[in-house]
């Protein structure tokens, strides 16, 4: 069943154009000049019930603009959106009943009040049946470990505690569609893990459809089967995460810190020396050809190593690679 359908969706912002200098500023007062910026450019996609889709792209690519239009708070310039059969902007209030939203950088909780007060009020606003509310609250308290948080004012919470509270607030009315805009931003690994587990469990048990924007590859790998990559307002990839990982995630980098100066090293197949400093060497290897232990063993046999580290490719790097035309190159 299709839950979200986006057709030719476009958003153009009108930005005031300022000419330099005082004369420009005065001129702008009387004859304001505007220029158009296309934030989202004729995008199309469809989401089925129960899907979790990662919506990724570099900063300013148009992710948040899309999410805002999907929630109904921002009016599209052209194109159409249907969420659960409704136009979210024209039927904003009806639509609001069925969606849950987390914007990682802005809170929906009452700052000065204990969390439980906020949750009680939200349940009331969304008309959650008291019995069902109690059930949900118990469940959330357990899985998000809210026990101690319920009585604390939000202003006294740590970032991780706040985010767990935000999630509870966004999902307490069991929405059918959930938009999560960078829900793990700035969190430590343990909290991230807990939040991912929670989202996953909720999706499975409630058949929620989720759109998740993030800069964290871990979020995507843990939660999503499908990713949509947007760049400069256009969708440049829409498909299974496996494909992306196979194509772009096959390289890893190891950095070695050495005791002596690095001279020449013999390396196994599928590796490439990226850079050498006085006491540092950076090597990239293809996971399908070689392994970390092979590379490490080869290096350690030849030179005394003080320390080494392995790095995952950043999602933004992958997006950049794709944007730079890697997809087209591969197609050829």
């Amino acid at each position: 069943m299709t839950v979200i359908e986006v057709k030719q969706l476009t958003k153009v912002f009108k930005i005031p154009k300022k000419e330099p200098g005082l004369s420009g500023a005065v001129k702008g007062l009387f004859h304001p000049q505007f220029q158009n910026k296309t934030a989202v450019n004729e995008i199309n996609f469809q989401l089925d019930a129960g899907e979790i889709v990662g919506y990724i792209g570099v900063n300013g690519a148009g992710k948040s603009t899309t999410i805002k239009m999907l929630t109904g708070v921002l009016m599209p310039t052209s194109g159409s959106i249907e969420v659960l059969g409704r136009d979210p902007h024209k039927q904003r209030v009806d639509n609001a009943h069925d969606i849950g939203v987390v914007f990682g950088q802005r809170t929906q909780l009452w700052w000065d009040l204990a969390l439980i007060e906020s949750l009680n009020l939200i349940a009331k606003i969304y008309d959650v049946h008291p019995v069902k509310y109690k059930l949900m609250l118990d469940q959330f308290t357990e899985t998000l470990e809210l026990d101690e948080l319920l009585k604390i004012p939000v202003r006294n919470m740590s970032l991780g505690q706040k985010m767990r509270s935000e999630l509870a607030a966004a999902l307490i009315h069991a929405p059918h569609v959930v938009y999560l805009d960078e829900p793990t931003i700035g969190l430590d690994l343990i909290v991230k893990e807990r939040i991912r587990d929670f989202i996953k469990a909720q999706c499975i048990s409630k058949e929620m459809t989720v759109i998740l924007t993030t800069h964290d590859l871990g979020d995507i790998e843990e939660l999503c089967q499908r990713v949509i990559i947007i760049d400069d307002g256009r969708i440049i990839y829409d498909g299974p995460i496996e494909t992306i990982k196979k194509r772009f995630g096959k390289f890893r980098e190891i950095t070695f810190e050495t005791v002596e100066d690095v001279k020449k090293l013999d390396l196994p197949n599928g590796t490439e020396m990226l850079s050498t400093d006085d006491h540092k060497v950076q090597i990239r290897f293809d996971r399908t050809v070689s392994t970390a232990s092979k590379v490490a063993a080869a290096v350690m046999n030849q030179i005394e190593v003080r320390d080494f580290s392995l790095s995952e490719p950043e999602l933004s790097d992958i997006v950049k690679q794709i944007y730079n035309g890697a997809l087209e190159r591969e197609a050829r």
Partner: peptide, 14 residues
């Protein structure tokens, strides 16, 4: 200033 107005506009009440 804090951008929370979006959350208020997204509440299913007037």
């Amino acid at each position: 200033r804090e951008g929370t107005i979006i959350h208020h506009l997204l509440r299913p009440i007037n």
